[in-house]
Design a protein around this nucleic acid. Structure first.
Lengths: 131, 131
DNA sequence: TGTTTATATAATGATAGCCTTATTTATATT
DNA sequence: AATATAAATAAGGCTATCATTATATAAACA
C-alpha cells in the first residue's frame, strides 16, 4: 500500500493540460510533434507535462529515430485504481501507516473523556442519536 | 463532461495529508477536533485541508453546536469516477472540448505531408509497421 | 458574564508548479 | 559538412499551495 505513488498519480492528473494530453493518448500513441500539432501547444510545455506523467507511471515512451512516441500505460492505471479501492475498503488496523492513528481512534471510541477532544461524544455517537 | 471538476478532485486527492484525512473519514464521519486528536496535526491545517476537499465535492459538513463533523460523499466519488471512465472510452468526435483537436488529428491521420509535423508517418503507422 | 472549547479565517513565509524563452543533444537530410 | 527537424533540459518569472502563527467567531459552561 504505497500511498506516495497515488499522490504522484493524482498530482499528475490534477492539471487541465495533462488531462487533455492523456485523453489524446487514449486515442492512440503519439509523437511529441503530433501532440504539438494537434494541441497547438509549445513543444517544451508538452515535453514537461509528458515527463510528469511518465514519472508518475502513467505513460511509457519509446524512441523512434529522433522522435519519441508516448503511450498510455493502461494496465498501470487499472492496477492502481483497483489498489486504491481495496485500500479504502480496508480497516485501519491492517494499515501500518495508521498504526498510531488507529490506537488513538480506539481511545476516542471507547473513552471520550480522557482524550484531548474535551466534549464527550464522538461524531459516530452523534449520528446514531440522530437516527 | 466537465473536466474542470475532475482537475479539482485530483488536485484535492494529490496531497498526502488530505489522503490521510480522507482515509480516516472513510472509517466514519469525524469532528475536526477528533481528526486533530487522531492525526496529531494542527487545527488550522486540518480545517484548511477539509475546505479544499469540501470545495472539490468530496466531503459534506454538518454543524453540531460549536463542532462540525465531516463525512465522505461516497456517491459523488462513485459518480465522477464512473464519468471519467466513460469519458476516456469515448471518441474525440463526441467531445466538444476537442472539436479543433479532432479536426487536426484527422488531418494528421489522412495526410501527414501537409501538416506541421514534417516527418511523414504518424505514431500509429510506425506501430503498425513494428507489428 | 467571563472563560473555555471548537472551528474558521487571515496573514506570512517558504516551496512547488507552470509557462516562456533559450539552449543542448541527437538524428536526418541536402 | 552544413542545415533542418525532434525532443529534452535549463533558466527565469509568476502564481499557487502548504504550514505556521495569530486572530475572529460562536457556542458551551462555570
Amino acid at each position: 500500500m504505497n500511498t506516495d505513488i497515488w499522490v504522484k498519480i493524482f498530482k499528475a492528473l490534477g492539471e487541465p493540460t495533462r488531462l487533455k494530453i492523456l485523453k489524446l493518448l487514449s486515442v492512440r500513441p503519439m509523437y511529441v510533434c503530433e501532440l504539438e500539432e494537434v494541441l497547438q501547444i509549445s513543444q517544451p510545455r508538452i515535453s514537461q507535462h509528458l515527463r510528469v506523467m511518465k514519472e508518475a507511471g502513467l505513460l511509457k515512451e519509446k524512441k523512434d529515430a529522433q522522435r519519441t512516441f508516448y503511450a498510455l500505460r493502461v494496465q498501470f492505471l487499472d492496477d492502481h485504481f483497483a489498489g486504491m479501492i481495496a485500500y479504502f475498503n480496508q480497516g485501519l488496523e491492517n494499515l501500518p501507516d495508521f498504526k498510531d492513528e488507529y490506537a488513538r481512534l480506539q481511545q476516542l471510541d471507547t473513552n471520550c473523556d480522557v482524550t484531548l477532544c474535551k466534549q464527550g461524544k464522538t461524531a459516530t455517537v452523534r449520528l446514531e442519536q440522530e437516527a
